[in-house]
Design a protein around this nucleic acid. Sequence first.
DNA 1: GGCAGCCGCGCG
DNA 2: AAAGCGCGCGGCTGCC
Length: 621
Amino acid sequence: MAVDEEHQMNLAFVDTGGEERAMAAADLLASEGIHVHHITRTRDAQPMIEKLLQMRSPIGLDIETTPLPAHVGRSDAGLDPHLSRIRLVQFYGGGETAYVVDLDRIDLDILAPLWTQSMVAHNAVFELKHLLKAGAVPKRLGCTMLQANALQGGLRALAEVASGRLGWKMSNGLETSDWSAPELSPEQLAYAALDAVAAHRLAAAQHEELTARDLLRTYRLMRDAQCAVARLELNGIYFDVNSHAALAEEWRTVAGKNADELARMMGPEVNPTSGQQVGGWLETNLDPDTLAGWPRTRTGQLRTSGRVIARHADHPLVGPLLAHREAATRLASFGPSFVAHVSPATGRIHASFSLGAAASGRMASYKPNLQNAPRDDAFRALFVAPRGRRLVVADYTQIELRVAALVSDDRAMLDAYARGADLHRLTASAIAGTSPEAVTSEQRRLAKAVNFGLLYGQGARGLAAYARSSYGVSMSEAQAGSARNAFFSTYPELAAWQRQTAQRAGDEPLVRTPAGRIFDFRRTSHGYSYTEALNIPIQGGAAEVLMAALSLLDEKLAGLDAKLVNVIHDELVLEVAVADAERCRAAVTETMSAGMRAIFPEATIDGLVEAHVGRSWAEAK
DNA sequence: GGCAGCCGCGCG
DNA sequence: AAAGCGCGCGGCTGCC
């Protein structure tokens, strides 16, 4: 569909090919022997419904939307169910007729009998959102974009997938045409119908390959999470705009003050937000000895990251530079541009969440990204529950370490979780050679770095650097090496799994996640990577656990006044009526545990999920 | 003015 | 032999 297509282009990794070679939709339909039936009278809808109810294969579905009058000028309004309405609903279930239902003339409710039928759309979360908003509840909706994602990675536009699999050269020239026009042109109707036909055809072809390559489970995990994602995006998250303005003003003040200070020290011509210019200034003003050891970027300029700069705490430039950097970053990423995402229709932030966005199968969030909100309480407190409501924040504890324990079947790790022991403490005691009880908090902090780093193939040098920069723990390379040895002799099955995974991925250049997602190194620009081979199955397994939980969420929340408002990889945030808060906390905990068990039936559930109730994201953490 | 690559940085 | 991973998004820069 039109607006939908535009949306996908933001996500598509590869362009869809030359427009000049595209075929008109009507010609493509004609060559397939399909004609378009434009349904404009209720008495014509009934026979259509009866025909479609007889279809055995999934019905291809698509919609066209148009901005509501109040939001016509707003770009992308047609993508947003709160700012637009559905004009057309297209169906194709096989045979010679594709149906285009005109909602200017037909009530959507008339289509109600269809929504129990198996259907498929491309980027179906889009259709789902609009239909749910309009009061229709499709019960069995598949997605050809997610099928393609399971098969080949990426989130590709319909035209690209259809080009690759059907050899169709679909045009997207009408995507921006006026879908509110009283009389739609035959070209518009053909264009609209074609996407439903393409979805229908693609679904069958891709289903076959998913089965052949044992990827059905991977696809179905995403498919079954679609409903939760659609509701998550529709719900949006409440955001305290007034307090945000005050916080942004503080950032502005700090950034300005430090910019002045820097101008005095470096000269007003040096832009402190330009790495090139700051690097150039350092190059001419630092002594040669300091410069000799200073790290450089790939392009040869001095590295000016906070990490590197912070090493020279004695230099007068460092304080103002870091302070400016922090305030300026906050302001740029989480200031006016962030609050601009508050919807004029709902007063809430409706970010987008893409299933299958990361190579591991993790979700990603954008416009805005709600998965990288600063952890400052001052910022997270802006995500506050409206009056009479609370937030429930629930997260998996150490999910990736648990997944690593399960996929490698590591005795010591699994025993630790079964006993409810603290794995960071256990690692710390192994490194320090003391009893777990004797571990200091400093040693435990270091062990955390060791656990996460070594899990993904970090070497001694990397570990030493990581411990210093991220945990403030100073460690020589030799010490890092012995920490490594202690780690792997404590967790020998994990070590064996790493060797085995690396070796197998060397032989056949792919790895698979616990639920079967394939990551093929031949599809990357860089080819085989040891660290990726170790990371993808673990990160992917954790993502699969979360998706399994999402697919169960709706039914577990039944009867509660609760809604999902954010998902951050291993954490769910829900907004709930005060009276239901405790029940919601219990339901979410149970749902997330069930998600874990869906992927790892043998997993220990004790201590797996932590959930808190509070007035804001900061308070409920 | 739009676009892509680079760097830096926020999160898990 | 050695190798932490995954994202989105901002500003700067060079290019068209």
